[in-house]
Simulated scan of single mutants.
Amino acid sequence: MAIDLNALANPGVTGLHPYQPGKPIEELERELGINNIVKLASNENPLGLSAKAQQAIQQATSDLTRYPDANGFYLKQALAEILRCDTAQLTLGNGSNEVLEILFRTFVSPGDEVIFDAHAFIVYALLTQSSGATARAIPSLDWGHDLDAMLAAINDKTRLICIANPNNPTGTYLEPEQLSAFLQQVPEQVLVVLDEAYFEYVPAERRAASVEWLQRYPNLCITRTFSKAYGLAGLRIGYLISSAEMAGLLNRVREPFNCNSLALAAATASLVDQDYVQRSVALNQSEMARFERYFAAKGINYIASLGNFITAELQPASQIYQALLEQGVIVRPIGGYGMPNHLRISVGLPEENDRFMTALEAVLSDTQ
């Protein structure tokens, strides 16, 4: 007897297309039989783990038969000290992606509307659809968030506004005064999530004091991650900062033991290793400047970025992406983000970036 599982599934799931991550190195090795591959597709930290994180992981392996600390006590204590907030304001997740999912599961229902930028992190659209809510994708302004248009889109059905700052995949950035003026105009019953996955890469003098804003705006919450500047993408750990009341609701929905022991130990140790973070940021700044000079010299349009990636207009993007794969260089096509004529390139080590530039020149000469 055949069962129509589509008829049984939630309506928001049947039309959903799974998130497409950057192509893994192992997959390209299998497909093309090549090695010495450079991956500049997933905005990972090219420096590898910090020494303190490695040591913490080694120590944590001795107790892996036990469940992890479900409340993440030590990580929350360390975060609260750095962020100058209360541990009751923190929600931990399997990457910031999961805390976003927890937020949607807690507050977004069928019939609600969610506002985000048309070129923002695609997970916002996926979570909106799976929640049975309606997406209001606002056209970008110079590849970034049009805050006035977002405000104009708010109505009685609006439940949540998602703002990535810096934005992925464009790297554009909203200055603190822009965000503060925006938050003052958002109705209190509309929640705003400020996705700061790339927060550490923003120059200190330009960073928003977003955690301090939580006292003024109880409808605000902030997500951050250890996957980028802290180099823990493979361990999947992130967190959300909010009012204690909001965190209490989120932690009712959060799965028990959602952060594993190795991730908790490594993240706690990484917070102490600020030298590693500073080296990561310094490398990113110097190599980002080199990318900008390279694209400018080649007459290639690019979007100025404050993340650890840069997006460039390269046509035909799909053909160039495939040709780069054959050269052993993985970048990220972003047609799914409404940008079919662009590729996103993560900032790697100098020698990895050299490989990309050499490969791109070869590809462009072949396509001309």
Rank of each mutant, 00 (worst) to 15 (best):
Y173E: 03
N219K: 09
V108R: 09
V281D: 03
E255D: 03
V190P: 02
A51N: 13
L126M: 13
G95S: 15
S62P: 00
G48K: 12
L325M: 04
Q178H: 13
C259N: 03
G231D: 06
E292T: 14
D366L: 06
G15Q: 09
Y67T: 02
I122N: 05
Q185T: 13
P24R: 06
G144E: 03
Q215M: 01
Y230D: 02
E292V: 11
Y239W: 15
N45S: 13
L194H: 10
Q215F: 00
L360K: 11
S62K: 14
I57E: 00
I25A: 04
A282V: 03
L283S: 07
A289R: 14
S242K: 04
A120K: 04
I34P: 01
A153D: 07
A233F: 10
G171V: 12
E200A: 09
N258W: 11
A247Q: 08
D69G: 02
V186H: 12
F107P: 00
L240P: 00
G111Y: 07
E245P: 00
T87N: 03
Q368A: 08
I222G: 02
R84K: 13
L5T: 14
D4Q: 04
V114C: 07
A229P: 04
Y67F: 08
L232H: 05
F257T: 00
P21Y: 07
N260G: 12
I25V: 14
E205K: 12
E205N: 09
F73T: 14
S109M: 06
V190H: 11
I241T: 13
Y198M: 08
N43R: 09
A323G: 04
M150C: 10
G234E: 13
Y74A: 04
Q327F: 02
E245D: 10
P46L: 07
I310C: 05
A197H: 10
G95Y: 06
R66W: 05
E101L: 01
L90V: 04
L262Y: 00
D275K: 15
Y321S: 05
A296F: 10
N251Q: 15
E98N: 13
L8E: 06
T61V: 09
D156P: 01
L174E: 12
K52S: 08
